[in-house]
């Protein structure tokens, strides 16, 4: 019989994670660092491993990686033709607009809500049909989205999309550097602007955030980035942004359009 792997680490010895954290300076002089360094002084095996780890020569950052790091954050998530903001209703056309108006007036009974905020996404497909999505739905590259909030509270709204790239894009307000969208009365409100879905496949979670005072959309985006990072880049695993405001979300599954 063969032993597939033998655990050579002795009790009390440092793990590879311990050693990497020490080398990176993650522990910043705390009690744990003192404990680990105390062990290193008495353990030739661990100090030898630390020396081996320190001797590793990493590859330099590639030119494309450096180039990406130099780009302003807004360009990173919206470069090229990934997403285009389209003037409200102008592209939808009259027939679609009529469908939307009917939809907005219809009572909404199945929306996913948290507190007193609900998000509905209206999706216009390439054939011109419009469907409303609450909770979870399907999206195709090239589809056009508009966002409707139903709320019992007034406030200031921001909508962000978290995708599987992973990246986060501010969907509302649509203009760069604009303030959060004011919601001045209870009821349903269609937010201005629309978004064209890009080619990024997989799950995308769209969050609506409603705060009592204007919140910088970039702060909401930063919270979404942190939440996405915490979920290992999986939008479907993000359940909240921790903004301290009313939040709700819709999960979209982006798939290629059937031929």
């Amino acid at each position: 019989m063969t032993s597939v792997t033998s655990r050579s680490r002795k009790a009390g010895c440092l793990s590879s994670l311990d050693l990497d954290e020490l080398l990176a300076g993650d522990l910043s002089g705390g009690e744990r660092e003192a404990l680990l360094r105390g062990h290193l002084e008495t353990c030739p095996a661990c100090s030898g491993r630390l020396a081996q780890f320190a001797a590793v020569e990493p590859p330099p950052a590639s030119a494309s990686l450096r180039s990406e790091a130099r780009r302003p954050p807004r360009e990173r998530v919206s470069s090229g033709t990934r997403r285009r903001v389209v003037a409200a209703l102008g592209v939808f056309g009259c027939a679609a607009a009529a469908v939307l108006i009917v939809s907005f007036r219809a009572p909404i009974t199945t929306e996913r809500t948290k507190g007193s905020l609900a998000l509905t996404i209206f999706i216009k497909g390439s054939a011109g049909s419009v469907e409303s999505v609450q909770g979870e739905g399907t999206l195709h590259p090239g589809d056009e989205m508009r966002f409707s909030l139903t709320t019992a509270a007034v406030g200031h709204a921001v909508v962000v999309g978290l995708d599987a790239a992973p990246s986060v894009t501010v969907y509302a307000p649509t203009a760069p550097a604009a303030q959060a969208v004011p919601v001045e009365s209870a009821g349903s409100h269609v937010l201005p602007g629309s978004i064209i879905a890009d080619e990024t496949g997989g799950a995308e979670r769209v969050f609506a955030v409603l705060c009592p005072t204007p919140r910088d959309p970039q702060a909401v985006r930063a919270a979404a980035l942190a939440a996405l990072a915490h979920a290992d880049g999986r939008p479907d695993a993000v359940t909240a942004l921790g903004s301290g405001c009313l939040e709700t979300s819709v999960l979209l599954h982006k798939v290629a359009r059937p031929r």
Binding site: A61, S62, E68, P166, L228, A229
Partner: peptide, 11 residues
């Protein structure tokens, strides 16, 4: 490179 691309895209 992929790991650090994620870092860049995560802010």
């Amino acid at each position: 490179q992929e790991v650090f691309l994620r870092v860049v895209r995560c802010g």
